[in-house]
């Protein structure tokens, strides 16, 4: 009797998590499947399998510039993450080592910055970017991305540097290293896990960032993937297979990286709860 109840319970538990997994998987699988269908079969039989592996939709989507959007996204994400990690690392280190209360006060100011969403300052940020002549500049887009990534990264590094063993630093100082040299040669090389965690977290957010890219990048040649793939919808009003092919090209690389490195992604993003 106990045995049977145990089996029924685990069936329910497996059923629940299994069904949810399936519910998540089906739309992603459908995206890939529909990319191989023809426009005709999409209309006549939306849930049927594609007749053959038609790669034409991928060619049409590629023709809109998905490759270029991808390069732009890689460029913007990489640069932003580098800037965020370096600037936040320096700031957090200075804040944890400064004598007196000024460090804590500035830290609180940066924490306050974390609470401010870009959606609430859209008009002035646009005015500043357009006033500075930064519209349609991928390099300039890095600046607001960095600004909005810095607060959380400083919070993360601040906690990490506070717990950092002082003995190592003191040893370097006795060897004649300045504060900055100590930071470069001792602190940074030993901060691998914190840097990796911050970099993954910011990469996911910047790779997918939409609203600023929508405002700043209006010329197709400069668009990143999230705004670029919207072009697909405009370009192919009823060509859903091409839209799905473009989405597959845009999302599959990051999904694959995620599956391969999921342990690190999960650890990095779960850090938000701490």
């Amino acid at each position: 009797m106990e045995q049977r109840r145990f089996k029924a319970t685990s069936l329910v538990l497996y059923g629940f998590t299994g069904l949810w997994s399936l519910m998540v998987l089906i739309p992603i699988a459908y995206m890939i499947m529909a990319a191989f269908k023809t426009k005709r079969s999409m209309f006549i039989d939306p849930i049927g399998w594609p007749d053959a592996l038609n790669w034409e939709s991928f060619e049409r989507a590629w023709g809109v510039g998905v490759g270029g959007f991808m390069i732009n996204s890689v460029l913007v994400t990489f640069l932003s993450v580098v800037v965020i990690v370096i600037f936040s690392g320096m700031a957090a280190y200075a804040l944890t080592r400064m004598p007196g209360r000024s460090g804590q006060i500035i830290y609180l100011l940066i924490v306050a910055g974390f609470a401010i969403p870009v959606q609430a300052v859209l008009v002035p940020v646009f005015q500043i970017m357009s006033g500075a002549g930064f519209l349609n500049s991928r390099l300039a887009l890095v600046l607001p991305y960095a600004a909005y990534g810095i607060p959380f990264t400083v919070i993360l590094f601040y906690a990490f540097f506070l717990d950092f063993p002082r003995e190592l630093e003191e040893a370097a100082r006795l060897d004649g290293c300045t504060r900055f040299q100590t930071f470069l040669r001792v602190i940074l090389p030993l901060s691998g896990p914190a840097i990796a965690s911050a970099a993954i977290f910011q990469s996911v957010f910047i790779w997918n960032e939409f609203i600023l890219a929508l405002l700043i990048l209006t010329k197709p040649a400069f668009k990143t993937l999230p705004v670029g793939i919207l072009e697909l919808q405009g370009e192919f009003t009823s060509d859903w297979p091409a839209v799905m092919a473009g989405l597959t090209l845009a999302t599959l690389p990051l999904l694959l990286i995620f599956v391969l490195a999921q342990k690190y992604f999960v650890r990095s993003l779960a850090g938000l709860g701490k």
């Binding site: 998590t17 998540v24 998987l25 997918n208 939409f210 793939i229 989405l247 990051l254 999904l255």
Partner: peptide, 13 residues
């Protein structure tokens, strides 16, 4: 891994 996956897809997609 599966249930978490949509988190790395952009909201636009």
């Amino acid at each position: 891994t599966i249930i978490f996956a949509p988190m790395v897809i952009s909201s636009v997609a």
